[in-house]
Design a protein around this nucleic acid. Structure first.
Lengths: 136, 136, 136, 136
DNA sequence: GTGGTCTAGACCACA
DNA sequence: GTGGTCTAGACCACG
């Protein structure tokens, strides 16, 4: 899980996002328990309140559910939901970015070119492994 | 200028963004004065301090400059700078969105499809006039 | 930190300057937290908004960074940056002063003499301790 | 006279400075009248209030004096005073710059080097004529 | 009239 | 507790 305290996106969202990815990747199967708030907090060396907020968000999204006295468990449809919500988030992000670009008066060609560049950069990163940042 | 107080991005940034767009679109030419802080504040019904903060940011970015006792004036290279910074912002947004999508395990096909959808939605909105917000 | 409300240079810049000096002097090490806005405001008996503005400037200059809910922390390269910017400021000041002197028709000898005097005055002040203000 | 409305130093000071230089250079002799506020304002295309403030400052410094109903005239000791005040201004500027540099923790060597650089740059500019800005 | 600084006090999100 | 944004209203220098 990639946590960066200097990142402007809130810590609890970074955590929720990390777990969402883990679910989409199948790291936790439906019915599995996820680490308790206290355990997670200790492991990540982060304030338990922050973990709590991350779990709350996941629960609202239906990815995990609490069973009284037992802890939080992965929902049956969690992996699909995780993928779906990731896709939805991507759509939202793209739509927002394009709307802003259009409002700024950028031409469709410029927008497509920017996407192609970002896309190529992503492929390069994938080929070179996740640790690489720039093309060599 | 589209100002939404419910939007999580700060008001003063929304204002700066709006003027940046106006500059990119050529609404104010180099050497032109932009509306005075007080006038803008009255028109947008927003506190002058907030306008001041927006203008401050534009001045730091070299888009406008202040002449004491006279007002704020558009810099000579303002429109180019505004376009360039808009393009840069788009690239950043796209790269961030794609990185997140990849981290979430989405397939390249899904990503491209999402972009195509967002792109089509943008074109549709353009054809139907700038007032349309939702899919037609 | 030397704050003079009668000084024409804005308070928030004086504050930022003071912290810049402290960073250059190594008073705060990279990774250290700097005093919270509210604490600093209370200590200096100055409005928190003014402190906030000073910190904002330091953050823009890359000397400190904020972590939400935790405070502002010294950047890794802060001390070097602080020194570099101080040196740059000195060069600018000297160049501006010399340009003005030349424009006023002063002779090179007069300029050098003035610098020697200012330099000697500085040495004397250093020998006599930082509290001395006037010529001994 | 070099007037720059984008310059952060107030226009009226730039004007006063320009006249001070003219006096030091002997462009106006003691007893000569200087251009009336209205004439000066029209020639420089500047608000008469601004000229008025510049003349006020020169009068306070004893460089010019008003004779009722006649206008403003150059004082007998004006050229010497102009030179002296320029020298004094230089001393002040240098002392202030050095004090700031010392407060920032710069070493004496660094300060002397910075002065030598500024001095060399000045000489180069002088050799190349007043219009040149950078060494070729 | 203009921009710029400062204070006071409020509310918010985050850890 | 932290930083960040916004409002309200004051005062200043400048043209």
């Amino acid at each position: 899980m990639n946590l960066d305290p200097a990142n402007p996106t809130p810590l609890f969202q970074q955590i929720a996002e990390g777990i969402r990815h883990a679910l989409a990747a199948g790291a936790y199967l439906p019915g599995d328990p996820i680490p308790s708030i206290r355990a997670q907090a200790q492991k990540l060396r982060i304030n338990p309140n922050t973990i709590q907020r991350a779990y709350e968000q996941l629960e609202r999204d239906g990815l995990i559910e609490s069973r009284k006295g037992l802890g939080m468990f992965v929902t049956s449809r969690a992996d699909d939901s995780a993928r779906a919500s990731s896709l939805e988030a991507l759509r939202d992000d793209l739509a927002r970015a394009l709307r802003a670009a259009r409002a700024a008066g950028l031409l469709p060609d410029q927008i497509d070119t920017a996407y192609a560049q970002a896309r190529a950069q992503l492929d390069a990163a994938r080929r070179n492994g996740p640790a690489r940042k720039e093309h060599p």
